[in-house]
């Protein structure tokens, strides 16, 4: 098999027995050299894109899944040498049989690392769990509802905490999927706003976002968690099967199997072109005049480019 040819069974750095095959390199690495590679890559991404500054307060979006738990672990590690203040925020959407376990993991991780945690629930904020909301709306657009509602709450609570930035656990697989989805939906402006940091328009009501795992493949995140004994739950959101992203994920993994390194090449291509796309998005917003500028939603008062924000439109408020 092709992968056998790429895997010698010995670490490419030290010749000791390997723990993992990284076909995108391609190389086998022992646990020690994999951990070094992983941590160096995350730190380099953070440094190169100036994601963190001394003294900043960082709100960490912590779902309790593997990506956000590993990101918290890495930010905590970085905070040992760069004084930053971490405060985790967990959104409890109310997804039966899924979120309760990851919520416990989030609490355990924060307790272990000494990071304060704020838990915010859909039930308290929107008077309904996601399960309850989707009973009325149908599960077909579950990820749209969940995404808009989660982003709204993360931004609101990060702002209330006085956070300078929100750290999001998007990994390289998420990025490659998002790039492909936006291309297939012909949404260049949405793609222009997407990136390592946010966004096309600065507004004091929007807390800037950073994505420290942007260049790290998802499988590497899982391997790091296993190697470092970071407690994780390998479980899938029950609504994920309805998502367009799921098809894109499957397609990209099939291509990756045949042509290793494809996902990272999509991420690199996006990074090279993102500056141009961001400039384009800013240009179009400027050209559109005040209509496209960030105002306030007439219903909830949160920042919005329209009269009513995406959340209130979805929830048919206002």
């Amino acid at each position: 098999m092709e992968s056998d040819k790429q895997s010698s069974g010995l670490c490419a750095k030290c010749g000791k027995p390997a723990a993992i095959t990284l076909r995108y390199m391609p190389a086998d690495l022992c646990q020690s050299h994999f951990v070094r590679l992983f941590e160096a890559r995350v730190k380099r991404t953070v440094r190169q894109h100036r994601m963190l500054k001394k003294g900043e307060r960082i709100a960490v979006g912590l779902s309790g899944g593997k990506d956000s738990c590993v990101m918290l672990h890495m930010l905590h590690k970085i905070s040992q040498s760069l004084p930053i203040e971490l405060h985790a925020i967990t959104i409890d959407e109310g997804i039966e049989g899924y979120r309760s376990r990851t919520l416990e993991i989030a609490k355990e991780q924060c307790s272990r690392l000494g990071v304060p945690l704020t838990v915010v629930s859909f039930r308290e904020e929107f008077q309904s769990t996601l399960d309850g909301l989707l009973e009325a709306k149908g599960a077909a657009r579950a990820c749209t509802y969940c995404g808009v509602m989660r982003r709204h709450l993360l931004n609101k609570y990060a702002r209330e905490l006085g956070a300078d930035k929100i750290a999001i656990g998007h990994n390289a697989d998420d990025v490659a999927q998002t790039v492909m989805m936006n291309l297939m939906r012909n949404e260049p402006e949405r793609l222009g706003r997407f990136g390592l940091t946010s966004g096309a328009v600065d507004d004091e009501a929007f807390v800037k976002r950073i994505k420290p795992l942007f260049t790290t493949p998802e499988r590497d995140v899982a391997a790091y968690a296993v190697m470092k004994g970071i407690q994780i739950e390998f479980a899938e959101c029950p609504y994920a099967k309805n998502a367009f992203r799921q098809y894109i994920r499957k397609m990209l993994n099939e291509i990756e199997g045949k042509y290793p390194g494809t996902k990272l090449r999509v991420v690199r291509a996006f990074l090279e072109q993102s500056r141009l796309m961001l400039d384009g998005a800013r240009y179009r917003i400027e050209k559109a005049g005040s209509f496209a500028k960030i105002g306030r939603c007439k219903s909830c008062g949160e920042p919005s480019s329209g009269k009513t924000c995406s959340l209130c439109l979805l929830l048919e408020r206002g």
Binding site: S3, G9, R219
Partner: peptide
């Protein structure tokens, strides 16, 4: 999409 452990140790493809 997978990681594999043999006798408790993560193992490469070969």
């Amino acid at each position: 999409e997978v990681l594999v452990k043999i006798n408790g140790k993560l193992s490469p493809n070969s």
